[in-house]
Simulated assay, not measured.
Amino acid sequence: MESPGGKGQPVDLLVEAFRKGKPGAFEAIVQAHQDRVYSFCARMLSDREDALDAAQEVFLSAWRNLSRFRGEAALSTWLLRIAANRCLNRIRRRKSLSEREAPWPESPGEEGEAIIFQPAGGEADLPDRLAETGEMREILTEALSQLDPGSRWMVLLSDVEGFSYEEIADLAEVPLGTVKSRLHRARMAMRRLLSPVA
């Protein structure tokens, strides 16, 4: 059975299929991007339920606005821009309601595993290396949670998602120099937070 969302099909073809009203096209787009969008939201919001709600909002917004997507950036970049905006709005809403930002999970709780920092790249399969990496992820997650939300999402995009400075500048709609200086300050802050561990 042919599907517009077949594996390996370029996303721009899926966008075209969606615009032409082909059945299953949008579901294929969601399937291709849902894990990345959810992971980003979870790291930004440090709350599983909030992240699920935000990810749903991202795809609802995408469904409403996909006809206006011009393809100047990758679809994943466009979706992460929506995700960043949704997450920042939720964080602002928390603060406006005088609620403290949800604590960054440090260990598995009653509702399941904590969401942890997952740096890009492969890992060795040796048990001692994996244990060491797991501890470092928890330390990095804690440090990342202490950054202000604006800096946190830039670090996530750059150091976790692998976005270039230019792509982040496009996402944030700020000059390239602003991105470089904000990332530099955020990384210096993380270095200070991590210095007792190093």
Rank of each mutant, 00 (worst) to 15 (best):
R152I: 08
Q9V: 15
I91Q: 12
A73G: 10
E132I: 09
L156H: 03
G24K: 02
M154Q: 14
L156G: 05
P119D: 10
F163Y: 15
D35M: 02
S151M: 11
V155S: 08
A54F: 05
E110T: 04
Q34E: 09
R185M: 06
E166C: 01
P149K: 09
E110F: 08
R129I: 15
W104D: 02
E113S: 04
R185A: 09
N85V: 03
M1E: 07
G71W: 10
R90T: 14
M154D: 06
R86G: 02
A172D: 14
V37F: 00
E2S: 06
G121I: 10
R137Q: 15
L171T: 15
A198L: 15
Y38L: 12
Q146C: 10
G21D: 12
D159T: 08
S67M: 07
L194W: 11
R129H: 13
V174Y: 00
G6F: 12
A114N: 06
E49A: 14
H184W: 09
P108S: 09
V37I: 09
S158M: 08
L147A: 07
D50C: 09
E57L: 14
R94S: 12
G109A: 09
Q34V: 06
E72Q: 14
E99L: 08
D159H: 14
P105F: 06
P108D: 13
A83C: 03
E132H: 14
A198W: 15
A62G: 05
E161I: 00
S98C: 03
A54Y: 08
R19N: 07
L126C: 05
T141P: 01
D47M: 02
K95H: 11
Q118D: 06
W78A: 01
D170A: 13
E138P: 00
W153P: 00
M154P: 02
V155T: 07
A124M: 14
F18R: 10
E16S: 03
V174A: 09
G177F: 05
F69Y: 14
A62Q: 02
L193A: 10
L193F: 12
L171S: 04
W153I: 13
E167P: 00
A114Y: 02
I91S: 08
E27R: 03
G112D: 11
L171M: 15
R92V: 12
D12R: 11
R129S: 12
S39L: 04
M136W: 15
G21Q: 06
G24E: 01
P149L: 09
P127I: 01
R191F: 08
F117S: 03
I82P: 01
G71C: 08
E106G: 08
A120F: 03
L144W: 08
I116K: 03
R64I: 03
K20H: 13
R70Q: 14
A51E: 02
A124F: 13
G109N: 06
G8D: 07
Q31F: 05
